[in-house]
Computed example of a mutant assay.
Amino acid sequence: MEPRLSLVTLGVSHLDRAIEFYRDGLGLPLETRDPDSDVAFFTLGATKLSLYPRELLAEDVTVSPDGEGFSGITLAHNVRSAQAVDAQLEEAIEAGATLVKPGQEVFWGGYSGYFADPDGHLWEVAWNPFFDID
C-alpha cells in the first residue's frame, strides 16, 4: 500500500445538517454537492472529507447501521498554537458541536481538546510542538 490517506467518509444521519455544520459552521470548502446524489465532498489539502448517509454507508460496507458508543476512531485537526486550540473548539461549539474535552495540556507535551460533530464523530483539535503542519 502506498503511504496515503485519500478520503475519510463520515456516515451522517442528516446530510444537509452535516453539510451546514462543516461548510457554514467550520468553514470547510465544499467541493462537490450534487443535489441528485447522497454524497458531499470537502477538500482538506491532499485529503477529502466525504459525508454520506449512515444507513447507505453501512449498506455499502455490509454492516448494521446501529453502532453505538465509542467507535475507536477520532479525527484530528492540528493547529499552530495552544490558543488556536481553544479558538477552534469555540468555533466548533458555536457551529453546533458538543464539547467533549476542553483544551488542556496533555501527557505528550502538547495541548488538545475534543469536540463531537452533530452526528457524534469525535474530532481532536491539537497543538503539537513536535509536529510540523507546514
Score class of each variant (00 low, 15 high):
17 R>K: 15
19 I>Q: 03
17 R>E: 09
28 L>G: 04
34 D>P: 00
42 F>H: 03
50 S>I: 04
44 L>T: 12
52 Y>D: 05
11 G>W: 02
40 A>T: 00
51 L>H: 03
64 S>R: 14
27 G>C: 06
5 L>E: 13
49 L>N: 08
71 S>E: 12
23 R>W: 02
58 A>N: 06
37 S>Q: 14
5 L>I: 15
46 A>H: 12
7 L>C: 13
5 L>F: 13
69 G>E: 10
44 L>Y: 09
8 V>F: 02
46 A>W: 08
57 L>N: 07
21 F>H: 04
67 G>R: 11
24 D>M: 04
60 D>G: 14
49 L>V: 02
23 R>K: 13
25 G>A: 04
61 V>Y: 13
66 D>N: 15
51 L>V: 09
41 F>Y: 15
27 G>R: 09
19 I>G: 00
66 D>E: 15
32 T>H: 09
30 L>K: 08
5 L>Q: 13
16 D>S: 11
11 G>E: 05
55 E>A: 12
51 L>D: 05
49 L>R: 10
31 E>W: 06
20 E>N: 14
30 L>T: 02
9 T>N: 08
66 D>L: 09
73 I>A: 14
47 T>S: 10
46 A>R: 12
6 S>P: 01
44 L>I: 10
47 T>N: 08
72 G>F: 07
68 E>T: 13
35 P>E: 12
33 R>V: 03
10 L>W: 04
29 P>A: 11
20 E>T: 14
24 D>N: 13
64 S>V: 11
70 F>P: 10
46 A>Q: 14
31 E>Y: 05
16 D>L: 07
69 G>S: 12
52 Y>N: 00
26 L>K: 08
16 D>I: 07
38 D>S: 14
29 P>M: 04
73 I>K: 02
52 Y>Q: 03
21 F>E: 04
26 L>F: 04
30 L>Q: 09
48 K>D: 05
65 P>I: 06
47 T>L: 05
65 P>Y: 08
47 T>I: 06
52 Y>G: 03
56 L>W: 00
25 G>D: 00
37 S>K: 14
30 L>E: 10
38 D>H: 14
12 V>I: 08
25 G>M: 00
16 D>W: 04
46 A>E: 14
16 D>T: 12
35 P>A: 08
35 P>N: 10
36 D>V: 00
57 L>W: 03
60 D>F: 09
54 R>W: 07
47 T>W: 01
18 A>I: 04
56 L>K: 15
61 V>L: 15
26 L>T: 02
11 G>S: 09
42 F>G: 00
67 G>H: 12
42 F>K: 00
22 Y>V: 01
9 T>A: 14
52 Y>A: 00
43 T>I: 07
53 P>V: 09
22 Y>D: 02
13 S>A: 10
72 G>P: 02
27 G>E: 05
57 L>M: 15
19 I>E: 01
67 G>Y: 09
63 V>T: 15
44 L>V: 11
22 Y>M: 06
19 I>D: 01
57 L>E: 11
48 K>L: 02
70 F>E: 14
45 G>P: 03
65 P>A: 13
25 G>L: 00
63 V>H: 07
47 T>K: 01
61 V>N: 08
25 G>S: 01
10 L>D: 05
62 T>G: 11
71 S>A: 15
60 D>H: 13
58 A>K: 03
14 H>K: 09
32 T>A: 12
62 T>A: 15
